[in-house]
Design a protein around this nucleic acid. Structure first.
Lengths: 123, 123
DNA sequence: ATATTGAGAAACCAAATGGTTGCACGTATA
DNA sequence: TATACGTGCAACCATTTGGTTTCTCAATAT
């Protein structure tokens, strides 16, 4: 549905490369696990698949999605493809979350406590 | 499928309240918009629905998902229900992202530049 | 030169998703 | 008391998702 925006009747799919959303990409637990693995060390699809129950092709599909939203980049060497993590793209998620940080951050809670203590003392 | 873990044959759905995943919840752009609205000010479903094209019931379903994963909390007053944001749950996402922060943070890139400058100078 | 290997593409499938409309029900209001 | 309002739920539907199996193809190994 997000992809629909980029597709037209003449180019239903292939040309306007379906751009994925980072949020949609990290929604899947397998993909998050892949990200964690790849962030530590660039890996091939085969190597990655060994860490999961599902087939290599299934992992390949996850990698496609991660590549489309640029959370991961390919580096070809011979017939092998090493996937490595692209941290910059993760910043998009961080940017969304950042405004909420102060709402849960303990430092702010401590500030609240401090303020109420002052209040009480003054009273 | 994540929910499947919590469901059994005897209790296919209702009893084992389908616990949603925060990541899955923020995957949808409408839900992210709802979060942003609700974070500023607690709102009722009707009030929220005015900000979107889709029906009130559709928004209600989104609110159900957000409630199930505790990103949002209900506060009933008469026949109205005010939904307000629960920042703590968002921390789960922040915790996932945090390890990657240093990889995109410009301060670290600057450090990299500095280090390579030193290297060059020494040479 | 031939066999094997790494990897993506295609076709298919069951389940999940996001939307709709219609309905039920408790709470406010005339 | 009767009516309008605010909300959630159920049933339905089209599309998307995540998985599988089979196939192709280029790169390596024998």
């Amino acid at each position: 549905m997000v992809a629909r925006i980029f597709a037209t009747e003449r180019f239903p799919n292939s040309v306007f490369e379906m751009r994925r959303d980072v949020f949609q990409a990290i929604a899947d637990p397998t993909r998050r696990a892949i990200i964690l693995l790849v962030a530590t060390q660039a890996m091939t699809p085969n190597a990655l698949a060994e860490h999961f129950d599902s087939s290599r092709q299934a992992i390949s599909k996850h990698l496609r999605i991660l590549t489309e939203c640029e959370l991961v980049k390919q580096e070809q060497s011979g017939r092998k493809i090493h996937y490595h993590f692209n941290a910059k793209k993760m910043k998009e998620v961080a940017d969304f979350i950042e405004p909420f940080r102060q709402m849960w951050d303990t430092r702010f809670n401590q500030l609240d406590n401090l303020l109420s203590t002052i209040k009480t003392t003054k009273k």
